[in-house]
């Protein structure tokens, strides 16, 4: 359940930005979560509701933008899409892959007032 800590991290960022960006309430949060980041979106939603209760983001909507996992296949010398870290290259079947994208966990933007 490290999604709970991640949500606490999100709330921290929201609180820190409230002053510099001049908002008092957060209505929607867009997160970019990569398919290989080890984050379970459903657990994230659950934790988000719990963590934000009573805060400036109480009742805020959480929108999760899923990003695909990508890896560089060395034998094919090109970028391929992977679902898991242990996936083989969908084209040549090799495991000589270097993950290049999909471990993102980023707060993209906010709808605030």
């Amino acid at each position: 359940m490290h999604e709970m800590s991640l949500c606490e991290g999100v709330l921290q960022v929201l609180e820190q930005n409230a002053r510099s960006q001049g908002y008092a309430r957060v209505k929607t949060v867009w997160l970019e979560i990569g398919g290989l980041s080890g984050v379970e979106p459903e657990a994230m939603r659950f934790s988000f509701d719990v963590v934000t209760r009573g805060s400036l983001a109480d009742g805020a909507k959480l929108e999760i933008v899923a990003l695909a996992g990508e890896a560089w296949c060395m034998p094919c010398a090109k970028t391929v899409t992977v679902q898991q870290r242990y996936d083989a290259c969908p084209d040549c079947g090799s495991y000589q892959l270097q993950v290049t994208a999909g471990d993102e966990m980023r707060i993209k933007e906010l709808e605030v007032e």
Binding site: V10, Q21, K27, R106, I107, K108, L110, E111, E113
Partner: peptide
């Protein structure tokens, strides 16, 4: 309401 782009890493 307005949009704020913050682009921050959750683990930042």
């Amino acid at each position: 309401s307005r949009m704020v782009q913050i682009e921050q890493d959750i683990l930042g």
